[in-house]
Amino acid sequence: MSASAFITITRPHNAVVAGLTALIGYLIATGTLTPPSLLLAVVVALTTAGGNVINDVFDVEIDLINRPKRPIPAGEISLAGAKAYTAALFSGGLLVATLTTTLCLAIALINSVILIAYAVRLKRTPLLGNVAVAYLTASVFLFGGAFAGVEGLVQNLSLAAITFLATIAREVLKDAEDVDGDAAGGARTLPMIAGVRRTGAFAFACACSAVLVSLLPFGDWWGPFYLAGIAVVDIVILFGASRGLSCTTPGCVRDSRATSILRAGMFAALAVFAVAAVI
């Protein structure tokens, strides 16, 4: 077994970014960062890494065809070794979470269970898989805020809700892009059941809901700067989602770049919240 493969299989860039996002969640909730808050990044990075590894464990047959260079199909890590590694990563994340707060530990435990359920079954379940991804993405902000107690978690509810709704919009549009490949692989996704056009309409409705949530006067960060910044973000999110409204084919959704625009809008929203929290 290759030592470098144990790093590659965790998708380290993805795990590190998720960990840093938890710190931003704490920053938004409190307006500052403290040395103990670094524990949040460690927990999220380990848990995300565990989720990435277990995904590869359950996708090994697909990866043998589509991604033969991934560590497991390439023979760099055995299936048994990957399963043990998964357990070690999740256990490590939960162990570090015990050094945070009870609320953080509860979120870490719930998310670990959902990551496992996603790899085992939810990924292949229409819409529920999208909802699981959206929750996991949004919950990183709740986790960061929870380190400051219930009050901190509440401060981050708006950002979590915006992220949840915008992520669902992006995820179903990504599924619309991949209809042909998913059909060949035997998957069942929302666009395959409801059609690309209806999926685009659903994504736009989610984006509109995210915009409405963003305008609610909910946290200490709400004020003139926030409203000015989030107005620009909302335009980007609505523009991105609207690009998929008229599409009836996967190729049209890909060409619209709707998912890329939505992703940019979500990153912009994070920046607006972070700056508003510290000024």
Rank of each mutant, 00 (worst) to 15 (best):
A88N: 03
A187W: 07
G144Y: 10
I261L: 14
L105M: 13
S214C: 07
A207G: 03
I9F: 07
E151D: 15
T259A: 13
P12W: 14
V211G: 05
V133C: 12
V96I: 15
A210E: 03
A148K: 08
L115P: 01
S91N: 06
I168A: 00
A22N: 03
L20H: 04
C206Y: 01
G223A: 05
R11P: 10
F267M: 14
A97L: 10
S4G: 10
N14L: 12
Y118M: 06
I62D: 12
P36K: 01
R121M: 06
N14F: 10
L128K: 12
V236F: 04
A117K: 01
A117F: 04
T259H: 01
A84W: 13
G265Q: 01
A276W: 02
T101V: 11
Y226Q: 02
T10L: 07
T189V: 08
V172C: 00
L89F: 03
D182P: 13
G129I: 13
I237D: 05
L79M: 09
A146L: 06
P191E: 03
V53R: 09
L27W: 14
T8S: 14
T125M: 12
A80P: 06
I168P: 00
A80R: 12
G229H: 07
T21F: 12
L33S: 09
I77N: 09
W222N: 14
V213M: 07
I235D: 04
C247M: 14
A277N: 04
L20Q: 09
C104F: 09
T47N: 13
I77L: 15
L215Y: 13
A132Y: 00
V232D: 04
I28T: 00
L33R: 09
G19C: 12
V172Y: 04
C104T: 14
A146Q: 11
A106H: 06
A201R: 06
A45Q: 03
A15G: 03
S158H: 00
A203I: 01
I28S: 09
V17K: 05
T248G: 11
H13M: 02
A132K: 06
F6L: 11
L99Y: 10
V57A: 08
A203V: 02
A80L: 08
P71I: 13
R121I: 01
T189H: 01
A41M: 14
V272E: 01
F143G: 09
A88G: 02
A82D: 07
A84V: 07
W221G: 02
P35N: 05
T137V: 15
S256H: 04
I110D: 03
N111R: 00
L238V: 05
L33E: 05
S37R: 08
R257L: 14
V42F: 11
V42M: 08
N111S: 15
R70Y: 09
L115H: 07
T34I: 12
P191V: 02
T163F: 08
V150N: 02
F141L: 11
G251F: 10
A87V: 15
T21A: 15
T101Q: 00
L128P: 02
S246W: 08
V272G: 10
L115D: 03
F143Q: 07
E151A: 15
V133F: 08
V236I: 15
T21W: 08
Y226A: 02
T101C: 04
G200D: 06
L39S: 08
D234T: 02
I72M: 05
A74I: 08
F225Q: 00
